[in-house]
Write a protein that binds this DNA or RNA. Structure first.
Length: 590
RNA sequence: CGGGGCGUAGCUUAGCCUGGUAGAGCGCCUGGUUUGGGACCAGGAGGUCGUUGGUUCGAAUCCAAUCGCCCCGACCA
């Protein structure tokens, strides 16, 4: 048990200006965290307690799923990253660490150390050097640790911070089959973990991004303030991150629209946007236009074509196999194509330097366009009656467009919905991307003495982000409404007259009884007015409040109120210990 | 990195446009009256007005630079 006067819970009546969203305001107002710098937070005692609760539940579920906890350093040798497959891609989000004496050397060779943003590059050679027999395969290791990522724009408090707490796990299996079994087991552990945190969440198909690997799922908490868009269908259960989502457009049996008219060039002075061509005097619907985009992949330009009405989903460019991809600049585009952006097209024979293009990729849905319009690679000119097979110079087709709400679900055909969500977990089946490396990978000898790479998976949970996601989802006008399992204290005994020995003794007895049930108790013994105590108890969101007041004592009762209910129960003092403990048993088991 | 906004006491902010040397509420300290949903009275402490430079007799106020924070975008393992 803890006396309020002995701990430190600095609640605020007003929200500091730094906070924009409700969960961030409540983190500050309830005295859980304070900002130290941009994207950097100190956990005050109440925040630390809650963070520990979330981490402990995570630990329990990982252990229950057979994972083994370890702890790796946060300061990592840069050489180990440089030897890995994604140094260049990941470097810009990494903090570099240098000692004063090493700085001169580092300026030439890059940093000597980095702060760990994740640990594949560390655990793979670690386990690789430890394990060499197939008998030792089938292990999953995890740690709960501070991670560092130089977010371009930290925001929303703990939601996207430069330093955050993460549970990262890594599995090493004999083969694909075993790896997929591990993946399923971790997925189940994730479901249990988020459920125990009291979260409403969904798992969605996700893009593997820079991590690579064969497939992945994200755990998403629906919330307006989320950073991700989730595409879903209630009918079929289909759910995917918009980066990954596909729709039933185009239909699987569709055919190219038939060419019907002669290709011709026409003047379009000043019209350099899809919208401009859609207006008079041209009146060409966006659906009937081709959108041509030039990107640079690992230094090599390539072209993309989509329907004018569609947006490129950049994450889908990952399928093209480049390590670093960025949009080309106008000065790169003009000599290549022969025109500035706005007049670009991919009609055969019109591209100034076709041989410089590393590839021309088309979204499948452009096949729906017949007699379309595209740029002529000549400023101020477009071409009409453009047809896909006949006229466009395409190397391959793929899925590059971003799905829009209302499009048919790929499984059920019903309209897809889109919702904002917070990503709180992400699991990947990695395959052998890391383990197969000859010099530092993780390989084992099988029963036939053959050397094989371990089939890996990796599993992340944003522990500190989960904490804030819980608040975002579990609050009301008065403050946080903690789910039982993650509440910093389960019960607050609000003593309205702490000067009365009788009241304080009763509070102590109740707290002792409650703690034997495993419930953490906070006794509000402060010399404050009742209103202040009630407001603070609501703000910090303790699930159960027992109020002891002089008035009630005269009647021989105390009051019991759940944070998520308006009802106040009056309980005779002689029964209070048994009543409260039985209520707690119900709540903590349910 | 591009666009926008904001930096005045621990927190929320007024004052800035139209220059004359800083005010309020909350919080904090002292005393008193209060005591079941953020009390009241009296007194008090606390601010190099983000920083630096410039204009001016005089700068929180005007100008410039810089730093920091917030929002939108880009980015996001």
């Amino acid at each position: 048990m803890q006396y309020w006067s002995q701990t430190y819970i600095p609640t605020l009546k007003e929200s500091p200006a730094e906070a924009e969203i409700e969960s961030h305001k409540l983190l500050l107002r309830a005295g859980l965290v304070r900002r130290i710098g941009g994207g950097l937070y100190a956990y005050l005692p109440l925040g630390k307690r809650t963070l520990d609760k979330v981490a402990q539940i995570c630990r329990e579920e990982m252990n229950a799923a057979g994972a083994i906890e370890l702890l790796m350093p946060a300061v990592l040798p840069a050489d180990q990253w440089k030897a890995g497959p994604r140094w260049n891609a990941v470097r810009e989000v990494m903090y570099e660490v240098s000692s004063a004496s090493a700085q001169a050397k580092e300026s030439e060779d890059g940093p000597q150390y980095v702060l760990g943003p994740t640990h594949e590059e560390i655990i793979t050679p670690l386990i690789g050097s430890e394990i060499s027999s197939y008998r030792d395969m089938g292990k999953t290791f995890y740690q709960i640790q501070t991670k560092f990522r130089n977010e371009i724009r930290p925001r929303y408090g703990l939601m996207r911070a430069r330093e955050f707490i993460m549970k990262d796990g890594y599995s090493f299996d004999l083969d694909d089959e075993n790896a997929e079994e591990t993946y399923r087991r971790m997925a189940q552990a994730y479901e249990k973990f988020f459920a125990r945190c009291g979260l409403n969440f969904i798992s969605v198909e996700a893009d593997t991004g820079i991590m690579g690997g064969s497939f992945s799922h994200e755990y998403m908490v629906p919330a307006e303030v989320g950073d991700d868009d989730v595409v879903y269908c209630e009918e079929s259960g289909y759910a995917a991150n918009v980066e990954k989502a596909t729709s039933g457009l185009p239909p699987s049996d569709f055919q190219d629209a038939a060419p019907a008219a002669e290709l011709e060039e026409f003047e379009t002075p000043g019209a350099v946007t899809i919208a401009a061509l859609a207006k008079e005097p041209y009146g060409i619907q966006a659906e009937d236009q081709f959108k041509t985009l030039i990107y640079i992949g690992d230094g090599k330009p390539f072209a993309l074509v989509l329907r004018g009405c569609d947006e490129l989903e950049e994450a889908k460019l990952g399928a093209l196999g480049y390590e670093l991809v960025r949009p080309a600049t106008p000065s790169e585009i003009e000599p290549l194509m022969g025109a500035r952006p706005g007049s670009l097209g991919l009609v055969k024979g019109t591209i100034a330097q076709r041989d410089k293009l590393d590839g021309i990729y088309a979204d499948e849905t452009i096949r729906l366009v017949g007699n379309g319009v595209t740029g002529a690679n000549k400023d101020g000119y477009h071409m009409r009656n453009v047809n896909v097979e006949r006229d466009l110079d395409i190397d391959s087709f793929g899925d590059f467009r971003r799905v829009k709400a209302g499009e048919p679900c790929p499984n059920s055909g019903k309209p897809l919905k889109i919702a904002r969500a917070i990503e709180v977990g992400h699991i990947f089946k990695l395959g052998t991307k890391f383990s197969e490396n000859d010099s530092w990978g993780a390989k084992y000898h099988d029963a036939n003495k053959e050397t094989k790479p371990a089939v890996m998976g990796c599993y992340g949970i944003g522990v500190s982000r989960t904490l804030q996601a819980i608040i975002e989802q579990s609050r009301d006008d008065f403050g946080i409404v903690w789910p039982w399992n993650v509440a910093p204290y389960h019960v607050v005994v609000t003593v309205l007259d702490p000067d009365m020995d009788e009241a304080m003794e009763l509070a102590g007895r109740i707290a002792e009884a409650v703690e034997t049930e495993g419930a953490d108790t906070l006794i509000d013994d402060r010399d404050e007015r009742p209103g202040v105590k009630f407001k603070d108890a609501d703000l910090i969101g303790i699930p159960l409040r027992i109020t002891i007041g002089g008035r009630g004592l005269k009647e021989g009762i105390v009051e019991m109120k759940w944070r998520d209910s308006k009802d106040v129960a009056k309980i005779p003092i002689e029964k209070v210990e048994s009543v409260v403990t039985s209520k707690i048993q119900n709540r903590s088991s349910g």
